[in-house]
Design a protein around this nucleic acid. Sequence first.
DNA 1: GCAAGGTC
Length: 861
Amino acid sequence: MKTVLMVAEKPSLAQSIARILSRGSMSSRKGLNGTCSVHEYTGTFTGQLVRFKMTSVCGHVMTLDFLGKYNKWDKVDPAELFSQAPTEKKEANPKLNMVKFLQVEGKGCDYIVLWLDCDKEGENICFEVLDAVLPVMNQAHSGEKTVFRARFSSITDTDICTAMVRLGEPDHNEALSVDARQELDLRIGCAFTRFQTKYFQGKYGNLDSSLISFGPCQTPTLGFCVERHDKIQSFKPETYWVLQAKVDADKDRSLLLDWDRVRVFDREIAQMFLNMTKLEKEAQVEATSRKEKAKQRPLALNTVEMLRVASSSLGMGPQHAMQTAERLYTQGYISYPRTETTHYPESFDLKGPLRQQANHPYWADTVKRLLAEGINRPRKGHDAGDHPPITPMKSATEAELGSEAWRLYEYITRHFIATVSHDCKYLQSTISFRIGPERFTCTGKTVISPGFTEIMPWQSVPLEESLPTCQRGDTFTVAEVKMLEKQTSPPDYLTEAELITLMEKHGIGTDASIPVHINNICQRNYVVVESGRRLKPTNLGIVLVHGYYKIDAELVLPTIRSAVEKQLNLIAQGKADYRQVLGHTLDVFKRKFHYFVDSIAGMDELMEVSFSPLAATGKPLSRCGKCHRFMKYIQAKPSRLHCSHCDETYTLPQNGTIKLYKELRCPLDDFELVLWSSGSRGKSYPLCPYCSNHPPFRDMKKGTGCNECTHPTCQHSLSMLGIGQCVECESGVLVLDPTSGPKWRVACNRCNVVAHCFENAHRVRVSADTCGTCEAALLDVDFNKARSPLPGDGTQHTGCVFCDPVFQELVELKHAASCHPMHRGPGRRQGRGRGRGRRPAGKPGTRRPKDKMSALAAYFV
DNA sequence: GCAAGGTC
């Protein structure tokens, strides 16, 4: 029997589609990556009985990056990234092992049906899948078609079954347009980002950002925030005047009337109108009207609307809202949360999800009435052909969801019930008055039937006192006419919800990536989220945007993306050549880049106002090995040491504290050592600022401290303080922290394993001798007589920290229990003993004996 | 260390 491999874009879709096509009779199993499942069943395909294997990828299989050597920031001129630097496709998520997985499942299959999402990205993933799978599939008989594309517009039985009988071919042009988009984004984004970051970080000391990024989506996103900031800054309040009239309606009730001219900006004119009206005793009714109006129930919920409401009404940031929604989805409470669609397909079972809510303590009454009286069909929305609108799938309570997830779920559910409810109907009555020559109006609303506002009370028509009944020609006594002086007020900072709307309108990002872009500009310290989730740009954000405006406004305008997308669409439609569009667009941006680099002084002028040069920043900390003057410690990210005499900057490890290390010096370059520490309970190690930036030995990497230095005799080096191989990670070595006493610590120089040991010992040294069993270096430990935990009256003991029974009680390994060698699969660590990093050549046979493993386990766990 | 796009 022949086999048909079918691939969807995500595990949930593979399952839904297989369930539809197999009519529920499939057998499912997990794939080798633990994330994707394979659903198998038999059926007919091109008139023959076949075995179907339905599975999925997890989004893109591959990602685009530069060849490794072009990712060295200090060796490559960013200008090279526009053309010279070659790119390669790498696996998008190596942990998922997607290529291997597809090949295992695809091996020996005869046909492939591609069920990827029906958009350009999906079309591109089709070819990623084919690249992986075609080489291992059975060879086709001459001329026989083996590759098919299923096109569907919703995940409904009819759509899926129709797609299956009308299979087509994947569209190469659409896929190519995505290839072009990827390459443009990569080359342009990385070139500008690297240039800006290096340029400004090399110049300013209090610029608090380790990355000054640029991108065709994030930069316009920031641009919107700064545009609003500029409006606020340049706003000049204007004074205006308003007439307000009050008439007596009943004995003890008066009506406030609105002036038909609304407001005037000239005081004398306002005064004139006031003079003409204030002596009038009566207001005459000129007209009355009563109109029935409706407030429409909401469209079904899609992702961006959910994100807007989450931000503006629930105070939940888009990134967080998305994570919460995904959790609700994987737990089965709501349908797939990433969708552009606001329209339910005709066949969608609306009553099913509604029935789920019929006994919910908060809205049972509303739901039961809807079910009994019949639901209202949702309004016609937009069908993007991706997924149905976000719908609650089962009932839930706050107790089972937790308060955060509950608030989002409650909103989604109320919104869903509202979409199948009736519109809110109300009566709007208007009375037009004349007082002297001026006209005034009074309006009032009364609810006829609340409709959906019953379940969305925050949308309800505000309760107003009804207007008195009257008719044309009636008169009312004027109680008062007065002139009010008011001022126009500036707009406030952009809210996240407003920003999402702007991004959507200008096509910046997609439903899935909008939260990412907003998050990016926060993390890069371009904007901060203020109260009411308003986005206030920082000095850095403002200067960047103003700088782009000054040099090349297109770099920040929202059109930067849409212009490129127009070109890409030509590729997708087969109207333009992929190579030509790509080459041309890169050429345009390469010119822009060179112009930007040449004009950077213009941005600098703005920077200088807000930031101070490196030489004027920071506090003196340690001495330079070249000029022996003090270097300054610059705390702003990325933290570094700067020698203004030599005009050199040395970067330091991030996310820790730095202090001087006893004025000790590196024997290689005479720089004073500094001590890096991750916190009081964490690890710390000495570090030579010069070696860390210019590794002295071939086997040392940049950015490392003395705990990885292979200097043979320096007292701070790995060679002198290393004890033995890390118990958790593959390449690390446990190193004694000589500064940690009296709460002595041994820490891995690669991962974050920290062992606490020998508390209150007054001296711990690494001995030159090694353990006969495991090759680890022995430790020499001295205790004070009064506090010695050693047996008898001993104050001194030498032994192996791993094997010595006396030391067993005195060492405690933090953090490693589940990752201990005992719990890991066999066959790693082959040929390597416990010796310290620079172990003498170990013969393959000298690994530790088997029972060593159980000894270790008993020891640490 | 960089982009933006999928998805977990």
